[in-house]
Design a binder for these strands. Structure first.
Lengths: 218, 218
DNA sequence: CACTTAATCCAACGTCCGATGGATAATCGT
DNA sequence: ACGATTATCCATCGGACGTTGGATTAAGTG
């Protein structure tokens, strides 16, 4: 693999763990703690201990505590954006291949979303904290939240325009599904029995989406 | 009005504000602050200042900071429980008066719930904080959250048993509706245009509930 | 009037926090 | 071999925090 892009080791004292950049180790530890207890309840010494380094090392890699917080959010949300953007593009590509194909595409899209949240439950925790304290996350909003909502809302709108489904208020539908999914993750974390709950929630969402496919016949 | 139940003024230094008990003033101020920023980001001196008293007065009336926090939650959740319990009883009483009546009763029930949340948005904030940090609210769960969920879930189950609607997983439906409502309140707080959004969200929920009334005909 | 009771505030204590200056170690470039 | 560069830790500072002891005020009670 391209030796040109493989950066030669730079001068300086070597990292404690050569396998993973210290910054990544710190961010991972901090993300878990922030997700569980929030900005103010987590001390930098605690983050440092969880990452196996000194508090000054944390500061050296991520600056102030607020910058560390933002970096944790950005990393998680960027991963989510990547997954969803691709899934939405795939859904859109089969949108006008008939109502059945469109329906399956939307099912797949929400399944990808729910899979992602179940796999990385800290995403839900961070989103909830962001919603609770919008003033602390103003910039993140424009970079992640708004584009994602717009993406999926436009997808629903396009599906409705193509006659695939009936949807008078797509932005409310999207928002409600997103929140229902977060509620699902919280219920799982609170100890709801796992496998069955996961299956039933997907069926619930599918059933709900199918309800949008035109009014019931007479 | 019963002079017997009207307590004579007890000895001691009079309150600053004779019209409202100091404890209530403190709880109201603390609730707003905790809802907005959470337990750790709010200082007792800040609460005291918002209530117009000294920090020692706060301690005198509510004990430790954790006790003050719990008292705020209990007050808000008790109000919610009161409203919902009555609305659920009313819905249940007309449940077997035919599908149309049952449908209207469920619409009314969720309207009461959404009305309450819109009226007191701090309820949503406190619920989200409780979900994020369940270990801090173990006792509140048993007193408020579980009974409420059980109440509404059993209502849906009874409605399904009476043949009024089709509902394979009532607990998931209830939870999803609750979370969608909280998402609605958060969107309103974030600046979504008010009156229209309120109307559309109710229509959305009604539409969703109506989708449970049997599968679409062939 | 004296005594009790209740509400309020002031001042202080010990603790923990985020941030920082500076020392040390290990690697690279020359 | 030697300075430059980077990573790491130790020690510390000023400030904010929750909590508490004790003084003060104003009412009821006898």
């Amino acid at each position: 693999m391209a030796a040109m892009t493989m950066p030669r080791r730079r001068p300086g004292r070597p990292r404690r763990d050569e396998s993973r950049p210290t910054r990544e180790v710190v961010l991972t530890a901090a993300t878990a703690l922030f997700a569980e207890r929030g900005f103010d309840a987590v001390g930098l010494r605690e983050v440092a201990a969880a990452a196996g380094v000194d508090v000054a090392t944390v500061a050296h890699h991520t600056g102030t505590k607020a910058a560390l917080y933002d970096a944790c959010f950005a990393r998680v949300f960027a991963a989510e954006r990547e997954v969803l953007t691709e899934a939405a593009a795939q859904a859109r590509s089969v949108l006008d291949a008939g109502p059945d194909a469109a329906r399956r595409a939307l099912h797949d899209l929400v399944d990808v979303f729910v899979d992602f949240l179940e796999d990385r439950p800290e995403t839900t925790a961070l989103w909830l904290r962001r919603w609770l304290e919008p003033q602390r996350h103003a910039e993140l909003d424009q970079r992640y939240a708004e584009p994602l909502y717009r993406l999926v809302t436009e997808l629903l709108t396009a599906a409705a325009a193509a006659g695939a489904l009936v949807e008078p208020t797509p932005h409310i539908t999207v928002r409600s599904l997103v929140w229902a999914a977060h509620g699902h993750v919280v219920a799982l974390a609170a100890g709801a029995p796992g496998a069955r709950e996961r299956r039933e929630f997907r069926l619930f969402v599918h059933r709900f989406l199918d309800g949008l496919y035109g009014p019931p016949g007479p």
